[in-house]
């Protein structure tokens, strides 16, 4: 049987959703047999591949780099899944949104700094004005809220997706 090409992406999140993904117990064995993980923090690929069946996105869209990534993801993925509250609602990364990004950076890297004071600019992507949920930037096909989503919800959703079915998550999942 043809394997499902699966990508996972880690944007502005804490990696807790990826942890929950690895925490699905023996369900992972059955799912691993049905998928090729073609991109993500768990594999080596540098570039986002050109043909992906399902992409799971953890984290809010928070920086210029995140923004470019989600557009690339949408372009090459058949199905985009927002995994976890940061991707679905903005959640904790969006707590900065009521204040200007510049003020927040200065508060942390200038006022709050002990030794080297200064907002880092080299080698780090610029922050967007606000950290926003993925669907405010690109079309999202499925939402799995939760902080993190429960392993049961992830296992069920992946189990359906590898069979080519759309999971019905309404009332099985919650925010928080």
């Amino acid at each position: 049987m043809k394997k499902v090409r699966l990508a996972t992406v880690w944007l502005d999140g804490c990696s807790g959703c990826h942890m929950s993904l690895l925490d699905i117990d023996e369900a992972i064995v059955a799912i691993a047999k049905r998928v090729d993980v073609v991109y993500g923090p768990l594999v080596d690929a540098q570039e986002f591949p050109k043909a992906v069946d399902v992409t799971l996105i953890e984290g809010a869209v928070s920086s210029q780099d995140d923004l470019e990534k989600v557009h690339t993801i949408r372009r090459w993925s058949k199905l985009v899944v927002a995994l976890g509250d940061c991707a679905v609602t903005g959640n904790v990364p969006a707590m900065r949104n009521s204040h200007p990004a510049r003020k927040m950076l200065e508060r942390i890297y200038v006022e709050g700094a002990q030794a080297t004071k200064g907002v880092p600019v080299d080698g780090v992507p610029a922050l967007l004005r606000q950290a926003v949920p993925v669907h405010e930037v690109i079309k999202v096909d499925l939402y799995i809220p939760g902080c993190p989503p429960t392993p049961a919800a992830i296992a069920y959703a992946l189990g359906e997706l590898v069979e080519g079915r759309m999971p019905e998550l309404a009332s099985k999942v919650k925010f928080g």
Binding site: P133, H135, E136
Partner: peptide
């Protein structure tokens, strides 16, 4: 499972 309206972030 998601909010279709943009958040206001007041």
């Amino acid at each position: 499972t998601s909010v279709r309206y943009p958040y206001a972030y007041p």
